[in-house]
């Protein structure tokens, strides 16, 4: 579905990602784990079109999308829920969701239907639909960020650090939703610092270290891998 071929990404003279080859098959949850600053977010931004590739290729559903600007990748079927949630704080929950569907140009009835589907997945957003997003808790904002991305009806959902700064109970809820999305046929590419959580749900996973893919395998394999356990899972646990 998504194929990154020997991708290089640079911020000026600084190499952020080097020679990354990553494949995402439809219907999977694919996780990218690694330390802070390993280049995970940069990779997702490049897939969403926010940062250009310095070299390498990117294909989505067989189509070369390297030259497609960010705003047109949404219509192509890729949506990113960015790191730090980035909801529009002074706009209501409802307006945030409406913006998520911006590229679909829905009529009122279809828009209401699409929102109702999100409220079913995230009941707490329904209660808060008329509140400005800034008044939401961190967990609710994360739910809103995911729901907003889903409003674009993506076939590939990119999630950047969905657990960031959230309480364990909320994190469990969010990961429950991520697996539920896979059951609904949404392909998920997940970037996470909490490697145990991400590898636990992932069909396939990559370890990114200082911009390079150093390990890949199924989630279960990497969860058992001694180097992963030592580096990201807190040693002997």
């Amino acid at each position: 579905m998504l194929q990154l071929d020997a991708v290089h990404i640079a911020y000026g003279p600084i190499q952020a990602v080097a020679d990354a080859t990553i494949a995402v098959e439809p219907g999977q949850i694919v996780a990218i784990v690694g330390a802070n600053g390993a280049g995970k977010s940069t990779l997702l931004k490049a897939i969403a079109g926010l940062v250009p590739l310095a070299a390498g290729g990117i294909r989505f559903e067989g189509r070369d999308i390297a030259a497609l600007p960010a705003h047109r990748r949404v219509a192509a079927g890729i949506a990113l829920s960015p790191e730090g949630r980035q909801v529009f704080p002074d706009q209501t929950v409802r307006d945030n969701l409406e913006l998520g569907a911006y590229s679909r140009r829905l009529g009122q009835a279809d828009l209401a239907r699409a929102m109702a589907a999100q409220y079913e997945l995230f009941p707490r957003l329904r209660e808060r639909q008329d509140q400005p997003a800034v008044t939401l808790s961190g967990g609710e904002q994360q739910m809103l960020a995911i729901a907003r991305a889903l409003m674009g009806e993506p076939r590939l959902l990119l999630l950047d650090e969905p657990s960031l700064g959230l309480a364990p109970l909320i994190i469990r809820e969010i990961f429950g939703i991520i697996t539920a999305l896979r059951a609904r046929g949404v392909t998920v590419l997940l970037v996470e610092q909490m490697a145990n959580l991400a590898l636990g749900v992932a069909d396939r996973a990559y370890v990114l270290e200082t911009g390079r893919v150093t390990l890949e395998g199924s989630g279960a394999e990497l969860l058992q891998h001694p180097r992963v356990r030592a580096a990201y899972l807190g040693g002997g646990h």
């Binding site: 949404v74 990113l80 980035q86």
Partner: peptide
């Protein structure tokens, strides 16, 4: 949305 953050606005397809 653009006023708040152009990058995130682009992620909405704007």
């Amino acid at each position: 949305a653009v006023a708040h953050n152009p990058q995130v606005a682009a992620l909405m397809g704007i």
